[in-house]
């Protein structure tokens, strides 16, 4: 029941929005996020019929970029390991 899922806003009518959750269409109240200026196309976190927060695209990309850095670090580690192996034969 604590299940909260990202949902894409399809259309808005008054306080209610039609959202898509993994292909399924559900209704949600935007009552708690009116201050966020939600528009169709935005993603929100949905919980028991209410949008709890707008999902920030910018922040999502900050996180994803960070993961890329970890990947770079990993490649570097691999290379160092290879170099070590060559050095020590």
């Amino acid at each position: 029941m604590c299940l909260s899922v990202p949902a894409k806003i399809l259309s808005i009518e008054g306080e209610m929005a039609q959202c898509s959750v993994g292909g399924a269409i559900v209704e949600a109240s935007l009552q708690m996020v009116t201050a966020e200026g939600i528009e169709p196309g935005d993603y929100v976190l949905l919980h028991t019929g209410f949008a709890l927060q707008k999902i920030s695209e910018e922040e999502a990309h900050v996180s994803l970029n960070l993961f890329n850095e970890f990947e770079d670090f990993n490649i570097r580690l691999d290379e160092e390991e290879k170099a070590d192996r060559q050095y020590f034969g």
Binding site: P6, K8, Y43, I55, A60, S63, L64, F67, N68, F70, E71, F73, N74, L77
Partner: peptide
């Protein structure tokens, strides 16, 4: 959106290594 990107296998492995 915002689900698949956070399940990337390669990135999981690098984070675990870290």
């Amino acid at each position: 959106q915002y689900i698949d990107e956070f399940r990337d296998r390669e990135k999981i492995i690098s984070l675990v290594n870290r």
